[in-house]
Amino acid sequence: MQVKDVAKSFFENGKEFKVLDLVRFDLSERDFVCVVGPSGSGKSTLLRIIVGLEKPTAGEVLFEGEPIRADNPQVAMVFQSFALFPWLSVEQNVELGLEAKGTPLEERRKIARKFIDAVGLTGFEDAFPRELSGGMKQRVGIARALAIEPLLLCMDEPFSSLDPLTAQNLRDEILQLWTNPDLPPKAVLMVTHAIEEAVYMADRVIVLSSRPGRMIAELEIDLPRPRNRKEPEFYGWVDEIYSLIV
């Protein structure tokens, strides 16, 4: 299972605005990759191209050798703003992707329950998004993405609308889920502007420059898990990435 990315750049109405330029990287099984970059590095655009929501102007994204499609059930997306349907309950939100796939009701319910439980939301099945705290909302977003049992999970700044405490708690829980090999996905691609967050979570960090986004570096973070943000090695990585960007 692989995501192969060749090269991309991006144009806008008539004039050429380079948002991304010649970004290339591979993603293979058990990879947890973070893309970091300052604002204007087009990292969110990159993610939207990777999941097929936008088309690249040059180059292509291949998923298991095939060009990517937006509704590819093997790739799921988690959004910064949660993007929950306010009129659907937690359970209905989680079932959404399954219903679109045509999974029968009984099975759908079973799968949804399983992932609601995995993210610690059992008890909130009937709740509506507005009744949840921010952290809970993002858990629904994660359960909804996992429920379609994707090979690749894409997360766009998943913690940046949360308060720092909730965010840290959720990061740890996601890492806990990630260590469970029985659960999907097979690989994670996360976009963030927080360098500490990237070093804390990823096996590999891809650093983008700003305007246009060019790949500056691809770093293997070989720190043992669980990582402690107070250790000097951790800071070494954070400092290195900072110096690359600034």
């Binding site: 921010g134 809970m136 965010a167 840290q168 708690n169 959720l170 402690n228 943000r229």
Partner: peptide
Amino acid sequence: VSVGQILGLVEAIDEV
């Protein structure tokens, strides 16, 4: 207060 905030606080204090 949410569950996540309390757990996050416990984690933060543990870390220091």
